[in-house]
Amino acid sequence: MGLFKKNPFGHILFLKKWLIRVFGLLTHRRFRGFNELQIEGSEILKGLPDTNVLFISNHQTYFADVVSMFHVFNASLSGRVDSIKNIGYIWNPKLNIYYVAAKETMKAGLLPKILAYMGSISIERTWRSEGQDVNRQVKMSDISNIGRALDDGWVITFPQGTTTPFKPIRKGTAHIIKRYKPIVVPIVIDGFRRSFDKKGLRIKKKNILQTFEIKEPLQIDYDNETTDDIVKRIEYAIEQHPSFLKVISRKDLEALEELNKKREW
């Protein structure tokens, strides 16, 4: 790698690599130490192409969700199976991982700016700004930047655009899927809201079982499925469809209570 080689967004890869290494070392114990990250499906990552992959996930904190994905992705690509044991995987990280984030969030302080350099595609939200509801047009440059990132590598997005559970899926994600036709890989996370504060920077509670499930890529008919069809697929895939709020059976409730006991060990 040339010392000053850059990615399509002008970030120097040598600097980005060192930022990921240092931040990886600083955050590893948050997912294996203070808390325990239980991973499922990491073998799926090894079969994915190097570019044009879109990861869709539910969202629980501003930053911890993405940081966990950097750990899991790099650990899996280095040969670990459902584990982030041994931080050595962070020495040679995958540098073409990007994530979609609100521009105002990534400008709010030095740490978010450092995290942005590590891979943020910062966009202007069309429905929320500075704590107020807004209604504005999508910036085509934001869509184009997501396309550039897909051309270069993997992109993580949180299609609800909020850490509040069971909020509607934003149709922008469906439009991106139809336009760029990426491989779409769902991820479902849990336990982060209990482990960290809303920003995902401060550890709120220790000894929480965090779960991280990588699912098989969605089978999407890019040409014939509508954006509404894709939105519904996403809702089910990341387990945020309203039907997941239905009353559960006593057997399922008992199983859930047992799982919650493990989460509080």
Rank of each mutant, 00 (worst) to 15 (best):
K232I: 03
V185R: 06
E216S: 15
E225I: 04
P159I: 03
Q132P: 00
D228M: 06
I123S: 01
D229M: 03
S249E: 09
I248M: 13
I146Y: 02
S129W: 01
G147Q: 15
I156W: 07
G153V: 06
K181G: 00
T157I: 08
F192P: 09
W127E: 13
R179E: 12
Q240G: 08
V184Q: 05
S141G: 09
K178P: 02
D152H: 06
D197C: 05
S129A: 15
S243H: 14
R148P: 03
V134H: 09
G153K: 02
D133Y: 04
L218D: 06
T162A: 00
S144V: 14
L201G: 03
P159S: 03
D197M: 00
G131M: 11
F244R: 12
V247C: 11
T173P: 04
R136F: 10
G191N: 05
H241P: 14
P186T: 03
I230V: 12
T162W: 04
I208N: 00
F244T: 12
Q132S: 13
T211W: 10
K204Y: 09
D252G: 08
F192V: 05
K215T: 12
A149H: 03
Y222V: 08
D190G: 14
T157A: 05
F196Y: 13
R202S: 10
D223S: 12
T227C: 07
V231F: 03
P186V: 04
Q132I: 08
T126L: 00
R233L: 10
Q137L: 10
K178I: 06
V185Q: 07
D197E: 00
K181S: 05
I208H: 01
